[in-house]
């Protein structure tokens, strides 16, 4: 049996019972695994986290953690760590007292507490910050303190809610690496919620894609990328070349498209971006299948408005099911 199991969990909001926030969701997380839950805002990913934390009442279904049914277990007895987007540190406590909060709740001996706090400060690279007040921290530092606070009591499960969402891009990329290394070092099981698939892919062993309160697909980052189960997943992960053919949709990977003077198709360039050493060209087809968006990468400079001919490797394409999404049941 898995370490964390969600069995057909359904959550309705108290304020608006018609809206199904989580619709019959089943997920399994193995011990020591890092699972990311991604999806656009409103897809139910944060609700899932809150349900596991006991902050949102579960309508039906079961949540099991390490074999224990969590129904009726109040949040403060669940033994979890939770890290929010904009750190949410206790403003009236010092850095050390923030990190030691969970240890204090467990009534750990003071000496053990301070030893653990120092250990964690060291781990997140903030030795010497113990006595600072929270408002003296930069965004990245605050986020590290929030992580240290979440993991200090050695929770059974670490939950991250858009942990890096409020940071600027450079800092986010740097912290993503740090975060993954820390999680590995601690050997903690983690459930990570984000709307950013890049962050999810960088951090997670497995990724759950959610849509409208349901699970759209579960798999490793590479499985998801190479075999998206639906147009929604493909779109969400950022595949640009999705060509509608009748009821089906053809997915053509960016690197399967190439400029070719004798290519079978033609298009007009409408955007050229220089990205990481190459040109990323976006064009719109004007042949038998007008209106297809074609994105590809090339070393040759293209000009907006230019007519191009291109070909694509048919073997790399896949056909995705109907474009019409299944209507949601409630």
């Amino acid at each position: 049996m898995s370490f964390l199991t969600l069995e057909q969990v359904t959550v309705r909001y108290e304020s608006d019972p018609v809206v199904v926030a989580l619709d019959d969701v089943s997920i399994e997380v193995e011990a020591g695994e890092v699972v990311a839950v991604v999806g656009p805002s409103g897809c139910g990913k944060s609700t899932m986290l809150r349900a596991v934390a006991g902050l949102e009442p579960v309508g039906s279904g079961r949540i099991l953690l390490d074999g224990q049914d969590l129904a009726g277990v109040p949040t403060h007895h669940r033994d979890l760590g939770l890290m929010f987007q904009d750190h949410v540190l206790f403003p009236h406590l010092s850095v050390a007292d923030n990190i030691g909060f969970g240890l204090r709740m467990k009534n750990q001996a003071t000496s053990e507490q301070s030893a653990r706090v120092l250990e964690l400060l060291d781990l997140v690279g903030l030795s010497g910050f113990a006595d600072r007040t929270v408002d003296q921290l930069s965004g990245g530092e605050a986020q590290r303190v929030a992580l240290a606070r979440a993991v200090a009591p050695s929770p059974r499960l670490l939950m991250l809610d858009e942990p890096l969402g409020s940071l600027d891009r450079l800092l986010r990329e740097q912290l993503t690496g740090d975060l993954r290394r820390l999680i590995d070092q601690l050997g903690v099981t983690a459930l990570h919620v984000t709307h950013d698939q890049v962050e999810a892919f960088a951090l997670a062993d497995r990724v759950v894609v959610m849509c409208d309160g349901r699970v759209a697909q579960v798999g490793s980052p590479s499985e998801l990328w190479h075999q998206p189960a639906s147009v929604f997943v493909a779109e969400f992960l950022g595949h640009p070349n999705l060509w509608v053919r009748g009821d089906d949709t053809l997915l053509v990977p960016v690197d399967a498209v190439h400029l070719d003077h004798s290519g079978s198709r033609s298009a007009v360039v409408d955007l050229v971006e220089f990205r990481e050493g190459r040109f990323r060209v976006s064009a719109r087809s004007d042949d038998d299948h007008p209106g297809d968006t074609v994105v590809f990468e090339t070393d040759a400079a293209c000009v907006v408005g230019q007519n191009i001919r291109f070909g694509f490797d048919a073997q790399q394409t896949q056909t995705l099911g109907r474009t019409v999404r299944q209507p949601k049941m409630s």
Partner: peptide, 20 residues
Amino acid sequence: RLRQVAATLGASPKAVRRIV
């Protein structure tokens, strides 16, 4: 969310009120 974080860290509702 301060209350929620405190609760996940093991603070009972009473403790949340007192400490947070």
